[in-house]
Design a protein around this nucleic acid. Sequence first.
RNA 1: GGAGGGUUAGCCUAAUGGUAAGGCAGCGGUCUUGAAAACCGCCGGGCUUACGCCUUUGGGGGUUCGAGUCCCUCACCCUCCGCCA
Length: 425
Amino acid sequence: MLDIKLLRENPSEVESRLNTRGPGVSLQVFRSLDEKRRTLLKEVESLKQTRNSVSMEIGRLKKDKKDAAALVHEMQVVSERIKKLDEEVKGADEALKGFLLEIPNLPHGSVPVGVDETENALVRSWGEPREFTFNPMEHTDIGEGLGILDFKRAGKISGARFSLQKGAGALLERALINFMLDIHTMEQGYLEVLPPFMVNSAALTGTGQLPKFSDDLFKIEGWDHYLIPTAEVPVTNIHAGEILDGPDLPLYYTAYTPCFRKEAGSYGKDVKGLIRQHQFNKVELVKFAEPETSYEELEKLTADAEEVLKRLALPYRVVNLCTGDLGFSAAKTYDIEVWLPGQARYREISSCSNFEDFQARRASIRYRPRGGKPRFVHTINGSGLAVGRTVVAILENYQTEDGGVVIPEALAPYMNGVEKIEKKR
RNA sequence: GGAGGGUUAGCCUAAUGGUAAGGCAGCGGUCUUGAAAACCGCCGGGCUUACGCCUUUGGGGGUUCGAGUCCCUCACCCUCCGCCA
């Protein structure tokens, strides 16, 4: 949610910055709603002032055993009017809030202006894609060939966009989760949390998935609960409605969770394999920081996610998403894209964003600077990393000509002695 | 699923239906070489240049001139019973 004062004071600037995300945002509606609300508020507040003081007078008269009938009658009329106006104010409030909840965040000044992902800016790249002496396969063929990925049976159990991992395939997933969490907790200072995988609608509104993107979410029938689309939702909401101590900031959290997404509107895209699933595992990094340091923290968080790829010796690049490709709640986002030899292209494996105070305002997450008044924190999060896509990257980058897969050296301690996944003869 | 108890500001704790009291922590000041103690002030949110005004007792609704207080309802927490990995 944007600061309402900013919308009042600089509507045209806000409008033009929002429009770099794509056409169609108009603040006309806001102006009229806001003015209507303030007019109503003025009238009802002055009536309440009258009622408050007269009611006190009535109390005094009754105490002195004097007659107050005339004043009581007068206030009956005033109260009726207040009741009616209060309803109008409530209506105006809800309309205004509803409007504000659907306005996306303002892009940061360092975000390149552009229409779609073709205009994202390359920030850096790391590692050299391996030269193959044979034609590299896609992860689906490798995995099915090794008997560690079984999409056919996953389809039988659950349908399209689900997977069944077996043997070394299941172990690899579990090893990666532990590997990533260990780096984040033991070396980078994040506190591990294991949050609920179902959240209520208030939490989803806090981080920005609701009210606008309910189509992407799995809702539990008959409950006000949804499966989480990312650990960002439960972890960011850990501090919803709280005032944190300034000296405690920044706070670093990491969490492993499965994530559930409908992937509505992606029909035909990545239908094969582990790339785009209704359920996938992810290790998430979440930070709460003071506004003055939030962009430094974004750089550090992105580097923390990159470290995982470096340890696994997987080539990647980092791009700065342009305004048109930016997510609803983000002010700035770095995507980390890993090299996939089977597809001969880079694919997103992590998305690291600074939300500034956009989520903090929606979820009411504040901190008290030493001795000062409460201020909204800045929230930063990113994947560290998407586990399923890391499996894809390992299968494709470490494949051998005989159809096997070598386990990256750094992962060896987590693989119970398995050094290479090989075909059974 | 059933029964009972609870939710007041960052924390703790009051308030015969009469308009949220007090303490702790924190911040500023006086005093002090410095600190502590003591004393004074500030210390939920919004509007206002200001004086002030409105609002806030878990959420929503009702009764009333007036609700922390009475009624209804929902959420959450605690205790016990039932069921259960």
